[in-house]
Every structure is written in structure tokens, then in C-alpha cells.
Design a protein around this nucleic acid. Structure first.
Lengths: 202, 202
DNA sequence: GTCTATAGAAGGATAGAC
DNA sequence: GTCTATCCTTCTATAGAC
């Protein structure tokens, strides 16, 4: 997606907000037009249909999310430092885009083939294999137990993403006792240690 | 909700499926009627509106989810055994209701006050405090480090729920290499050890 | 490019017969 | 209780003037 005009950018920003918050089915073209300060006709002039507008937004957001996710892993630090950096960067990123995981995960669950259109299978496999290779190195060098890499990978991202997926529930469970942002903030520094304790050789 | 007639049960079952899979905004009354083998008029005869039908379904599903979640913690086993039992039971439950976490979490994020209508604040606090008290005991007796109980609680449920929230993404990331159900199955036995390693005193 | 006006489709809800 | 037929509102999309 290349955004050529100011109006197009405004539409795109408005659509991003609306789709992120309410999903494809819940978002309304009228609301998007209003947020962009235009009318529906102009909306359709730029993006021919709701579906096409959604595709454009989804492609951009999914790419952002996955690039950030795997980008945080692309360095040659030892695992503990890598995790510290990952959680710090990744959670900071999610704080700025709190609806992103819910949006991307839901829409992919609704329509799995959407993702394949954006990332080729090869590119995905490359990113995952890169992470796995790094974990293999750690195992080889005896820094961590010979863990199941798939499971560990899931655990690592579960711990950063889950609170954003479950925010409403968590706020209700803990009520006035705890502040959501404080809880999130602490995770930036504590999760790396949590993981390391779980997997390191003793 | 007390279901008085067969038709009412069929509607309720059909609505449960539809809402779980597509959410409130995405589900269609026509589709629910069809799945229940009736027409829309009859649907409205039993449940006056989509909103009311949704409320009934949501109340039942949210109650199911939270009862199961906290129910798995209600025993006096030592932490490691408790976690083994929790993950085994909870993940088995989620395998039977794979859409439940996505549905409940999303709808609460969309509309947080819905949950308060179902569970009173006191009841919620009681369930959480009960779990926290158990963790305090473990800390007192020196079995585990003096961890942040809120964080640990989040981590424990994140690890069982996240794969179901992210199923579409995970299936794409791992593609033909891994089978989703196999991955889930292994978590029933491995997660308790993962947590214990992370938190136990050495 | 942007607007007003409106067409057209889809979805939720109701009237009334049986 | 259950159906057919239909209404009404909401939403997406387009026509046509400027």
C-alpha cells in the first residue's frame, strides 16, 4: 500500500482505528468516513469496497506485528539478553498498539488464508527457522535444556501478548487492587528471568 | 437461564455455535434459525432480540469458562500437583471448547460491563483471593520464590489459553511441520514443569 | 476530488394466519 | 408454538452534480 494523498492517509488512519477496535464485522463505513472527516462516497472513491479497505489495513497491521515480533529476535545476543531486549521492545510496542494482537489474531482465525496472501510461506518459514536455529545454538552450547523449541516459542510470545488479549478480563479480576499498566510495565523486566529460570541448565 | 422446551434448547445450541465462532457483530439471526431448524420469527418468539439471545449465551459461556478456570484450582494439592491437574483438566476442557477463550475475551474487551452483570464483584474477588492465598502458602512454606502473585497468575493462564487464541497464526507459522493438536496435547504435561522450574526455590 | 442524494442489499424484528 | 409474509432500519455502494 502506497498512500498518495492526504485524504487517503486520513481514511487509512480512521479505518485502522475502527477495524482494530471492532473488527471487520463490527466496523462501519459511515464511522470510518466520519473519523476521516469525509463522506462515504469519497471513501468508496479511494477504496472500492469495505473488503478492499479492510484488506489494505489488515495487510499493513499484520506486517507491522510480525515484523516487530521477529525483528526483536534478530540479534546475536545470548539468550537471556535477547529475551530482556525482546520483552522490553515488544511490550513497549504493544503498549502503543494495544488492540493489535486481538485484531490480527481474530481476523486470522476468522479467515486463515488472508495471512498467506501477505506473507509468502517461504518468508514465514525463514523467520521461524531463524528463531529455532538460535535456540538450537543455546541448547548445543549447554546454556539451556534440550527443550521443545515449538513449545518454548509459543510460551515466549504467549507471555507478552496474552495480557493485551485478556485486558478486559484481567482488569475485572484484579479490580481496584492493581493497575493494568503497572502490571504490564513490570513484565518488561520480569519475563526474561521467568523464562530463563524455566529453561536453563543448572 | 432455564431452558424449558426442546426448541429453546436447539436455538440456544445454535446460537452458542454461531456467537462463539463469529462474535456478536458477525453472527446472523438467519443463520442461527437455520442451524436450529426453525425460522427467524420463532427465534424472536423465544428470545425477543439478538441482544437478549446473545446475553443469554454469553452469560452461560462466561460462567462455564470461569467456573472451569477457577474450579481447576480448588483443591489442596501441593503446587506442582495442582498445576499438573490444572493444565491437564483445563486444556482438555479447552480442546472441547476451542473458541471459548476468543469469544469470551473479545466480547468482554468490547463491552467490559457485561461481565459485571453475570458475576458480582465480590464473587470474582473471592475466587482470585482464594488462588492468591494458595500461592502465599507456597511462598510461606518456602516451596517457591516470593513471586508477584498477579504476574504468576497471568502467566499460568496465558500458557494454557494463548494457543487457542492464536491458533490460526500458529498453524501458519509452523505449517506442515507440526500438528496443532499434538502441540496442545504435549502442553498438558509439560507446562506444570515449565512453571515449577520458573518459580521454585533451589 | 468532493459532495448530496439515493439506490440496493442485508439483517433484525413484527403481524397475523394456522 | 410455528409458519409465511412483510416491514423497517441499517449499512454498503453508486449516480451524478459541482
Amino acid at each position: 500500500m502506497t498512500l498518495k494523498s492526504i485524504t487517503q492517509e486520513k481514511i487509512f488512519a480512521a479505518a485502522t482505528q475502527a477495524f482494530e477496535e471492532k473488527g471487520f464485522a463490527g466496523a462501519r463505513m459511515q464511522e470510518i468516513a466520519a473519523r476521516a472527516g469525509i463522506n462515504q462516497a469519497l471513501l468508496h472513491y479511494y477504496f472500492r469496497s469495505k473488503e478492499k479497505l479492510f484488506d489494505a489495513v489488515f495487510a499493513a497491521l499484520a506486517a507491522t506485528m510480525f515484523d516487530k515480533l521477529f525483528g526483536c529476535f534478530s540479534n546475536d545476543l545470548p539468550l537471556e539478553r535477547k529475551l530482556q531486549m525482546f520483552y522490553n521492545e515488544h511490550i513497549s510496542f504493544l503498549q502503543e498498539h494495544p488492540h493489535l494482537p486481538t485484531f490480527v489474531l481474530n481476523e486470522i482465525n476468522q479467515n486463515p488464508q488472508r495471512l498467506a496472501k501477505i506473507f509468502g510461506a517461504e518468508r514465514i518459514d525463514l523467520m521461524v527457522q531463524n528463531v529455532f536455529r538460535q535456540l538450537d545454538d543455546e541448547i548445543q552450547s549447554g546454556n539451556i535444556r534440550p527443550v521443545d523449541k515449538t513449545q518454548l516459542f509459543i510460551n515466549v510470545i504467549a507471555l507478552s501478548m496474552f495480557p493485551f488479549l485478556a485486558r478486559g478480563v484481567l482488569e475485572m479480576l484484579f479490580q481496584q487492587n492493581v493497575n493494568f499498566n503497572d502490571v504490564i510495565e513490570r513484565r518488561k523486566t520480569e519475563l526474561a528471568q521467568f523464562i530463563m529460570n524455566a529453561v536453563k541448565n543448572k
